[in-house]
């Protein structure tokens, strides 16, 4: 009888182990900088979106939002979608997504300010709400933040479990003159994301930067 109980226990443990379904769905939030001259780079953003749509699978979540004067707002989300579990429906959803992005790219207006932090906060909020297993925030920007008067963005990011990737971080004219400015700008964002303490241990997310858009497969690499 004792043996029977042990065997039953083992079987139950095995079944429980099998049924433990890890959340493997990916959530991607792409922030598009629409300020100043960077708005001209949006065509490149279209290729990134195409790549992501081709890569994301049923069950994954994808959202695209613009970075403007006040990005911490649902109004800035251009398109958001959690793909259906069925591949055929997912394909239709992706087609609809492209349509929305096309409309946005055609009608986009340049913003005066660049509220990247607000966009990141919005992305964190959205992805946490969706509850995807893996969370990616892609920032398509030159990382030059310019806040309008009265906008306060000294809120620390809670980025544990997030991977933040800066895409196409272009060099400004001032950067060409003084590369230290560019490096400093990137470093500031890296610190904001990783939030390392004095011992060098990270309490935030994972930071990465991809300037070569031919290397987009690095987004989902560990």
């Amino acid at each position: 009888m004792k043996k029977l109980y042990i065997m039953l226990g083992v079987v139950i443990c095995l079944l429980a182990g099998c049924s433990q379904t890890e959340n493997r769905n990916r959530g991607v939030f792409l922030l598009l900088d629409t300020s100043g001259t960077y708005a001209l780079e949006l065509k490149k953003a279209r290729s990134i979106i195409n790549y992501l749509l081709g890569t994301l699978e049923p069950g994954d979540t994808f959202a695209v939002a613009s970075i403007d004067t006040g990005s911490f707002s649902e109004k800035d989300i251009v398109a958001k979608m959690t793909f259906d579990q069925r591949p055929s429906t997912t394909n239709n959803q992706k087609r609809l997504f492209i349509k929305k992005i096309d409309e946005f790219v055609q009608n986009v207006s340049k913003s005066k300010y660049t509220d990247i932090s607000g966009g990141v906060l919005q992305a964190i909020d959205y992805l946490n709400e969706v509850g995807t297993g893996k969370k990616y925030i892609l920032i398509f920007s030159d990382l030059k933040e310019e806040l309008a008067d009265g906008h306060i963005r000294d809120v620390p990011f809670e980025l544990e479990g997030f991977k933040v990737i800066a895409l196409n971080v272009t060099k400004l004219r001032t950067d060409i003159k003084d590369p230290k400015q560019y490096l400093k700008r990137v470093e500031v964002w890296r610190q904001k994301v990783e939030q390392r303490d004095e011992s060098g241990r990270s309490h935030g997310g994972v930071w990465d930067r991809i300037n070569d858009l031919e290397r987009l497969d690095a987004i989902f690499k560990k």
Partner: peptide, 15 residues
């Protein structure tokens, strides 16, 4: 395998 994802879902995992 691929058409089965239409029936049981393409984003679910067992282990």
């Amino acid at each position: 395998a691929l058409p089965m994802s239409e029936m049981v879902g393409g984003g679910n995992y067992i282990g």
